[in-house]
Simulated scan of single mutants.
Amino acid sequence: MKYFRSLSTVAVVLSISATSAYSENAVLPGEGSFTKFGETDGWTVFVDVQRQSCLIERVDAEANVVQMGLTSDHKLGYLGVFSKTADLGNGGKEDIFVDLDGVMYTSQATKMRKNLTDGYAGGYILANNPQFIEDLAKKYTMTVFPEEEQSFVVDLAGTYKAMEMARACNAEQN
């Protein structure tokens, strides 16, 4: 198994398919100022004005959210999963396994409820493994296995194009 490390710096989010029921602002986290940069293949790219970086977000029909982006120092990538229906507890860390089309990764996820849009709970991991980030961009299905909660599947369609748009967005922020 390959390994990517978790650090508690920035919150992010994961999910499945897009919906247009949301405004120009990112759904999560609840703090910060987000402006829409663009859309591609079911993903929305936002500028996090406070952190001067960009993130991608996808929201499914059940209002689950996936976000991926860079930490405020632009040194690590982050990935998070947030839901209105999951009982993910508050704070703390738990082991998590992520399967990307048959390639398994493991890490520790940091759970959170504070600073999120009302009704959401979830957690995030930070990635320091370039192969993990490449696999996120190029694989098609992500299955997440939290230690205590039920596993779930995330459709990664369009992730590569969304990450490319986020890279262009980040270049404009510097």
Rank of each mutant, 00 (worst) to 15 (best):
F4V: 13
S6F: 10
L7F: 08
L7M: 12
I16G: 11
A18M: 13
A21M: 12
A26K: 10
V27F: 07
L28Q: 11
P29N: 00
P29S: 00
F34D: 04
G38H: 04
G38W: 02
E39W: 03
T40R: 10
F46L: 13
R51G: 05
R51N: 11
R51T: 02
R51C: 01
Q52L: 12
I56Q: 01
E57K: 05
V59S: 06
Q67F: 01
G69P: 00
G69K: 00
H74R: 15
S83M: 01
S83C: 02
D87W: 01
K93C: 12
F97T: 14
D99M: 07
D101P: 00
G102M: 04
T106I: 01
S107A: 11
S107T: 06
S107G: 01
K111C: 03
K111H: 13
M112E: 15
R113Q: 08
R113M: 10
D118P: 13
A121S: 14
G122V: 02
G122D: 02
L126T: 15
A127Q: 06
N128W: 08
N129Y: 01
I133Y: 04
I133M: 15
E134M: 10
D135C: 00
K139T: 10
P146K: 05
E149G: 05
S151T: 06
V153T: 15
D155T: 05
L156D: 05
L156K: 11
L156M: 14
A157H: 11
G158I: 09
T159H: 06
Y160S: 14
M165L: 15
M165F: 03
A168L: 12
C169P: 11
N170C: 03
N174H: 13
